[in-house]
């Protein structure tokens, strides 16, 4: 909140001052180029906006060509930082090696996926991962058509599915977490890359169920009903759990919470302007992540991430590429 207030004050001051810019920073100048995932974009944008109030001479630009598109540019050394909504893949590491680019992998926030039904839906009290799988797996195509096929106590009403389009990172993550294999899903559902379209669909269809980013639920909570998820693994929280900043951070809302990353080019990290920006990013991510609708990591994890950046540790801790159900603190230690 304090940060928010000061940023407003600084904003008012700078807009009143006209050309007379106040520079409270170290007077560094230069460029920081960021590209990558559109999921992480709002966070990077927020950090860049705040950073400008402190270091007005450093030009930070942010693009959103997708995690994969960003890594292509990253491996050619065209950008300093890549936003990623999944860990780097083996072939991307290979590309980085060819381009002589070493990277520092820094988790910056969580993104929870919300499973929602229509406001008027009274019978869905919770769903298990198995039930979700039954709904969404490829074998369900053309066969699972009514709610009572999912659970006998549900009514004999048609079930209308709304989900992320195949080009979306959300699709990759949901299918991996629920079906068990990325990009493996039934095809006969209402798909859109734009989560706002899915929100509209579910809120106007009584028999709907859909999934999308938690931020989209939070901004439309009055129109939707959130479904608690039971992963039937009592070691990370008993029973069905509702997604919330707490349950996402403490690892009990599983498996539908995924980490967001920034990958910093190790050579760029030597430059003072990039170093200053990344430090600022990690220090302010806890506040800004919650403000824009992502979920902040725990302070313990942020401390580990800052340590990781300061010691310039390169390489990935997600060698298997799996982020479902991992404990971030254990991985980074």
């Amino acid at each position: 909140m304090r940060l928010f207030l000061t940023s407003i004050i600084v904003f008012i001051l700078s807009s009143c001052g006209g050309g007379n810019k106040q520079n409270q920073g170290t007077g560094l100048s230069g460029e920081v180029k960021i590209d990558g995932s559109s999921t992480v974009y709002p966070l990077s944008e927020a950090v860049a906006e705040e950073f400008r109030n402190v270091e007005s001479e450093i030009r930070v630009t942010v693009g959103e060509s997708g995690t994969g598109g960003g890594f292509k540019k990253f491996s050619r050394g065209e950008i300093d930082i890549n936003d990623a909504s999944r860990p780097i893949k083996g072939e991307e590491i290979e590309l980085c090696k060819q381009g002589n680019v070493e990277f520092i992998e820094l988790p910056v926030a969580y993104d929870g996926l919300a499973v929602v039904v229509n406001k008027e839906n009274t019978f869905v009290d919770y769903l298990t991962v198995k039930e979700l799988k039954k709904m969404w797996e490829p074998a369900a195509q053309g066969k699972i058509k009514t709610w009572n096929q999912i659970r006998a106590s549900f009514p004999n009403e048609p079930i209308n599915l709304y989900g992320a389009g195949t080009a979306s990172g959300t699709y990759d993550y949901f299918t991996e977490a629920i079906v068990g294999e990325a990009k493996s899903s039934r095809g006969d559902y209402n798909a859109s890359e734009d989560d706002n379209v899915l929100v509209k669909g579910v809120s106007s269809d009584r028999n709907a169920i859909g999934y999308f980013g938690l931020a989209y639920y939070q901004n439309n909570a009055d129109k939707l009903k959130l479904v608690p998820i039971n992963d039937e693994d009592d070691s990370n929280g008993k029973g069905a759990i509702l997604p919330s900043p707490e349950t996402v951070t403490n690892g009990t809302y599983q498996p539908l919470a995924r980490p967001e990353f920034i990958y910093v080019n190790a050579k760029s990290a030597e430059k003072p302007e990039v170093k200053a920006f990344v430090k600022f990013y990690l220090e302010n991510a806890p506040v800004l992540a919650n403000e824009i609708g992502s979920v902040a990591l725990s302070q313990e994890v942020y401390n580990l991430v800052i340590k990781r950046f300061e010691s310039k540790k390169t390489g990935t801790v997600f060698g298997t590429g799996k982020t479902v159900g991992v404990n971030m603190a254990d991985l980074l230690k």
């Binding site: 180029k33 590209d35 974009y41 990077s44 944008e45 860049a48 906006e49 400008r52 030009r59 930070v60 630009t61 942010v62 693009g63 959103e64 060509s65 540019k73 065209e78």
Partner: peptide, 17 residues
Amino acid sequence: IGALVYVPFAPSSPMDE
């Protein structure tokens, strides 16, 4: 071609982002 979204400065030459 990599046009950005967040650009907090006015371009001043054809080589700017």
